[in-house]
Structures are given as C-alpha cells and as structure tokens.
Design a protein around this nucleic acid. Structure first.
Lengths: 340, 340
DNA sequence: TTTTTTCTGAGGTACGTACCTAAAAATGTT
DNA sequence: AACATTTTTAGGTACGTACCTCAGAAAAAA
C-alpha cells in the first residue's frame, strides 16, 4: 500500500494539519519541522495522491490554446485535436479550449493575454510569432500564476517557458535530406515556398534545409524563398514566373502549413510528377496529394500529441511537478504514402 | 459543474443506492428502472468520476508485459519504457511490470498465462508469436476477467483482443519505398535479412517490401530472405556468401529488431557507404549506425508510446470504457539522421 | 388475502486529501 | 514569572463514488 498523509504524519511525529501545511506550502511551520516532514517523505517514499487531492479541492483545470485566427486546414486540425483532447481529458477534470486571436497583431494578442486572470484559466498554450510585447505579456502571465507554454511556434531554448513542438531547424534539415536523397545525383534547382519569411519558424526551417542540401547534395541549388502571403493570385503568379525562369527546377520545398495553394499552382504550370515536392503538416489536402503522388513526402508533427502534451505540461507545472520529458517530445514525422 | 451521482438520482427519480446498482451492474433492479436511470444519464450528461470511484474502491491496477527472454537491445528498450511508464502512471495508481518468458516455447508461455489469476494482475500485454495454444490461453485469460492486448507482435485484425503496434505490412512497404527512392534509377539487387522468417511479423514485412519494390522500382530485384537465427557466425557466413555471389547488391533491408550482427557483417565484407541500408527499431546501435552513415534509414515504432498505449487500453477495457482510438495508433516512424 | 420474493430507499462508513476552527503547547519577550 | 506570539495539535467537514445493511414498498406467488 502506498503511504498516506496519515502515515507521513506518524513517521514525522507531527499531526496531519502540520503535514498539510508543509505539503501545500502554507505558513506557520518552523524550519525544523518542515525539514523533519520532508525527511519523512523521503524515508517512507510518500507520493501525494493527486486524485484524492484534486477531489478534495474539487479542482478542475481550464486551459486555453491561443491560435491564429487566420490559417486554413492546419488550424482546423488543431482545433479538432483540442476538442478531442478535451474529450479524453474529461475524466481527469481538465478542459481545454481553442481561442482564435489575431496573433500577428501584437497589440491584439497582448490585450487578450493581459486580460486573462487566474479566475478564467489555469494555463494557456500560445501559438504566436514572437515580439517583445508578447514576450512581456507572457512573463506577466507567469507571474500572475497562469502557466504558459509556447505552442508549435517560437523558440525552444531562449525563454524560460516550456515549449511544445518540433525543432524547426531539424525539420528543415529532414526535408532537405529527403529532397536530396529522393532527387538523386542529377543536378537541378529547388524552389522554396513560404507564406512569409518573417517568422522565426520559417527562417529556421530554411536554414536547416540549406545546411543539408548545400553540404551533402552539392549538385542541387536552392532558389531564394518565394513568399505567397497566403494570396492565391500572387501564389500563382510568382510560382509560374519562377518555373518559367528556371526550367531546370526539379524540386520544391513548401515550408508553411498551408500547402494547397503552392501545390496547385505548381501542378498547373509544370509536370509535378517529374518533381520532388516536400511539404509540411498533415492535412486532408496534403494527405490526398501524397496519395496521388503530387507530393512526395510530408514533414509533420502529430497535432493530437502536441495538444495533449501541452495540456500535460501545464498541469504538471500547476501541480508543481516536473513534466515527464521523454513523453513530451514532439517527433518530426516523415510521412510517405505507405505510412500515412 | 459536472453532474454527480446525486444529481443523477434526483433526475431519475430514484435513490443513490439504485443509481449505484445500475452504474455498477449489480443485480436487483427492474428493467424499467435501469432504463430510467440510463435515460437520465443521457439527459444530464453524467460521466462517472473515475478518480473518485477508484479512490473509493481503493483500486489500483497491475499490468504485466510478457516479453521474450531472448533478444537484445530492443527488448531492453522495452523494459526501460515499461519502467518509465510505470513511473509516469504511478500517480494514477497503476503499475506495470515486465516479465521475460521463453515466448517461443508455446508450452512455457501457455503455462505462465494459465497460472495468472485476477488476484495477481488486471491485464497483460503479450508479445509472443502466435500459436493455437497461445491463442487458447489468451481466450481463457479474457474469460477469467483479465484484460489482454497483443503487444507489437501478432495479427491486428484477426482476433478479438486489442492490438498495440504497427502494421507490419505497411512498415515493410515504407521500407521498400525508402529503399527504392534512395537507390535511384540504377538497377541492382537487394539483400533481405531476418532472424527468422517463421514469424508472421517478418512475413508481413517482407510482403509489404516486395509489393512496393516490385511494383514501383522494377530496376531492383530482391534476393531471398537470409535467416540469421540470431547466430553471429552464421550471420557472418551467409552475408559474406551472399555479397560475394551477388556483387551487384546495392541495398539491404534488415527486418528484425536486432540489426547489429547483420550491419556489422555487411560492414566487414562490403563498402557499406555505397549501399542503402534500411533497418528496424531504434536502439543505441541503430542510432549510432544512422549517425555515422552505416544505416540510411530506420523504420521504428515509439516503444514508450506503445507501452503507455497498451496500459491505457487495458485500463479502459477494465473500466468498461472504449479506448480513445485516435490516441492509441502506433505510427510507423521513419528516422533519418536529422530527425533522431 | 396472505405470503413470499423482488425491488427500492435511507442511511451509514470508507477512500486520501484539503481546509477550517479552536485550543493546546512551545517559544520568545519583558 | 507573566505575558505575547508563534507553532502545533485535535477534531471536524467536504469532495464524488463504492459498498454495506436494514427496513420498507411493490410485485408476484400462494
């Protein structure tokens, strides 16, 4: 049987109330007594029964995911994953909710974050480009006792807040490796397409991609990144121009989550079956495109896993536990037709 | 607030005791009353608070993983994953334990399984080759009220018990696709190496591999499978012979979990950097070999995820819930140097 | 109708923890 | 030594469910 607070009290030679004060960091306990209790915890291997604790506290967790209000299918997949996670966490009395904010407007997101209170929410997972204002707002959130994780976007290491998502540099490298190996020894040019190159994520992917291709596949040369700004006409135009100006294009790396416009544009201008296309993120479009060979490989991250991971991390932090790191790494998945 | 049993009782117009009888399937409740309670459950959306229930029941779950007593690193990784899962599930009062049994001896494993009782264990995850005896023993386990999942090995669809692991046919196809794309248009022969071809898993991987390579990469021809029986001398011998007899070998597919012997044997006889090697399962050896380019790709399954998944499924079944399918699919991972 | 059987209600205790109060004990101060 | 203050104890109720008992109601059988 697992030792209970009662056993712990007996072992430490104090009362239940004192044990409670120590465990929950309440005041009015002498240093010496605290130490005695902690030693007893070590000695008998006491682990708090969080279920009983949450029951007694009748605590339930409320988490929010702050997502861009723009963005098509991938954003919808995230929302769906949140809903699903919500379902699978319902038995642990934790609820998650997706909020769509104009994340590219630092003012809007800062306003939203600043208005959040511990009464509304226990933690937020934020998917937004970095900016000093946002960073500040996030820091103030933490100070107010709201847990924060950076979600899918942002820098893993630089900040103190937890990050959930893939290493974009490694993801770019992976894409570059696939591209190089799939293309073979023939020389050629590679088109790189992104919605924008403003975001750190895009920059890192591009860096990783370039690094591998330039160092290991010297026969290939990478063209400057094309920015679509998510606009259909512009996408069609710049891709057509690029293909016409470079008849020796043999591959395309589509860096942003919405691959539909670029892939369609390429398909309309060139013989897509002769090219190697690598895209990011699993959506119904990329899946279909992989199936009918318009795309050759997808670099993806498991959104369901990412959402659950963010929730688990926020909960662990809230309970002042360390998250189990090994379970929370989001893997860079390579999807081919066969392992969809 | 989530409705409680009290709310449910009031809504159904019955007492708490009756609600309890219905919820826990105890006898002595009229059909009509049962129906009324169930309708009330639907109506107010009652969900049992499993934490409170487990607390009241002071129930803890004990699960066992039955693994082969042979097998090297991969088996150790599984044991490590079990230990880790044990740790991360400890706060949910469920404990898992790895047992090493001579799974290839149907008699030994049947004996072991048959001796298991509900007093010892609530569920077992079995990683063992199929045989009629074992299938029978598993069926009897279920009847005795012990949950069973087939773990990593065995057939996903045929039986009624849950299966946790990858689709080996798809894994073989994935390996075939990687092999074909990485090798390029040059013709050549591919060596296929397995510890044994007796197991269904190996057969299915080979089938999937052949299917893709033959249909999409006609320039390649696949040699008959070499069986190592896990013996070092034999491995060295047959691989050397094979390489000498077929100087045009350009790739090798190592199907079983232990890649060390075959890779080392190939490395000693041929120029491994000129060949494409695809191996299964992430171990410290395959990782190192991928890093220094002896192996080109690893087809893997996340053992940590698989273990946790098996535990969650056994628990769900024990609580008479449906597992959340989407969370329990084990993905076929493709590992390259960049996304380790 | 009466008797037997089946069903239901009311109430309790328990699980392990949180959190509250009142009072006792230990400590410090003058 | 008397007082003030801090620390600790003892005891309680609560969370939502399980599981037990016993009495009473309803239904079925005699």
């Amino acid at each position: 049987m697992r030792p209970t607070t009662k056993d712990l009290a007996k072992e430490a030679g104090v009362s239940l109330a004192t044990v409670d004060r120590v465990l929950n960091g309440r005041s009015g306990v002498k240093e010496r007594t605290i130490k005695a209790v902690n030693e007893a915890i070590e000695k008998i291997g006491f682990v708090r029964n969080m279920q009983a604790a949450n029951l007694a506290r009748s605590k339930s967790y409320r988490f929010q995911f702050i997502l861009p209000d723009t963005g098509g299918e991938f954003r919808n997949m995230l929302l769906a994953s949140i809903k699903e996670a919500n379902h699978s966490f319902s038995s642990e009395s934790t609820a998650a909710q997706g909020k769509q904010i104009a994340v590219n407007d630092p003012h809007a997101i800062t306003n939203y974050i600043t208005a959040l209170s511990v009464d509304d929410v226990d933690g937020v997972a934020i998917m937004a480009p970095e900016s000093p204002q946002v960073r500040d707002a996030i820091a103030r959130l933490s100070e107010r006792g709201i847990e924060v994780v950076q979600f899918l976007s942002g820098q893993p290491k630089a900040s103190k807040v937890d990050f959930v998502g893939i290493d974009n540099h490694a993801a770019g490298s992976t894409a570059g490796h696939i591209m190089g190996r799939f293309l073979g020894p023939e020389p050629g040019k590679i088109m790189v397409i992104s919605e924008t190159m403003q975001s750190r994520d895009a920059i890192e992917r591009r860096l990783g991609f370039d690094e591998i291709v330039n160092s290991q596949f010297g026969q290939l040369s990478i063209l400057p990144s094309l920015e679509t700004y998510g606009n259909e006409n512009r996408t069609n135009l710049i891709i057509r121009q690029c293909l016409e100006n470079n008849p020796d294009i043999c591959g395309a790396y589509i860096m942003n989550a919405e691959a539909q416009l670029p892939v369609t544009a390429i398909d309309q201008t060139a013989d897509i079956s002769q090219m190697v296309l690598v895209a990011h993120e699993r959506t119904t479009f990329t899946e279909a495109a992989l199936r009918d060979d318009r795309i050759d490989a997808i670099i993806a991250q498991n959104t369901g896993h990412a959402v659950r991971s963010a929730i688990r991390i926020m909960r662990a932090r809230h309970e002042q536990r360390e998250p189990f790191a090994s379970q929370e790494t989001i893997r860079i998945e390579i999807l081919l037709k066969q392992n969809l």
